[in-house]
């Protein structure tokens, strides 16, 4: 999983902004390995947030581990239902962030297969625990991915819509606008203006590869 985060180095005189790409899973794994080793525990890490402790663990050590990991925003979820929800979320994210694009098979069966539970069960479980549905979560993640790709600027909107399995650019624009209340172009302009990359006043034309490819689409 790759995310962009913003590192802000605050000096008294100048601010330097770095835009970095990182693998959150890898980072979390490193932290967990470090902390577990620190407490002298033997363990095996499962694929999706599962830690199997091989030796016995005392109450105090567990509390210690919990606070250690909490420091990094990692919660120990002992609840099986929560684990399943988290696993579902991870499957969805992994699916959307795959470089080769979304799976060709039906998404519901893909998730069910990956989490190893029936889709109906997962659907209900998800709704109970997350204030949203799997469907909405997928849309939200897809739009988040689209936002990231738009800001990277390497792909045109047509290519992004293809990569995220939208039937057309119009469909992506539609869902983007419906989800964020903004058009992809104004989203791009807002973030760029926030970063100070452009100083365009609103209403002004901005240079965007999103528009050019789309305009040629209606011919």
């Amino acid at each position: 999983m790759y995310f962009f985060i913003v590192l802000v180095t605050l000096n008294t005189i100048e601010i330097m902004k770095l835009y970095v790409k990182y693998d959150i899973h890898y980072a979390v794994n490193v932290i967990i390995r470090e902390k577990l080793t620190e407490l002298g525990l033997e363990f095996e890490l499962g694929g999706l947030g599962e830690i199997e402790i091989l030796n016995e663990i005392s109450e105090t050590k567990l509390l210690q581990l919990t606070s250690y990991l909490n420091h990094y925003g990692i919660d120990i979820v002992d609840n099986l239902k929560s684990t399943l929800v988290q696993k579902t979320k991870d499957v969805i994210r992994e699916m959307i962030y795959k470089e080769e694009g979304l799976p060709t098979s039906k998404i519901s069966s893909y998730i069910a297969e990956k989490v190893n539970r029936s889709y109906g069960y997962l659907h209900n479980l998800f709704a109970e625990n997350t204030y949203t549905s799997i469907g909405n979560y997928i849309i939200m993640q897809k739009i988040e991915r689209a936002k990231q790709l738009i800001m990277e600027g390497d792909l045109t909107l047509t290519e992004i819509s293809y990569k995220l399995s939208y039937s057309s650019v119009a469909h992506l624009s539609y869902q983007f606008k419906k989800t964020t209340g903004l058009t992809p172009s104004s989203f791009q302009r807002i973030i760029k203006r926030r970063r100070g990359e452009i100083e365009t006043a609103p209403g002004k034309e901005i240079i965007t590869n999103l528009a050019s490819t789309n305009a040629s689409n209606n011919k």
């Binding site: 119009a170 624009s173 539609y174 606008k177 419906k178 058009t183 172009s185 050019s212 789309n214 305009a215």
Partner: peptide, 13 residues
């Protein structure tokens, strides 16, 4: 062309 594109984006719903 860009104006039309943006208009269509706004009217996408």
């Amino acid at each position: 062309n860009k104006i039309l594109h943006h208009a269509k984006e706004e009217l996408t719903l």
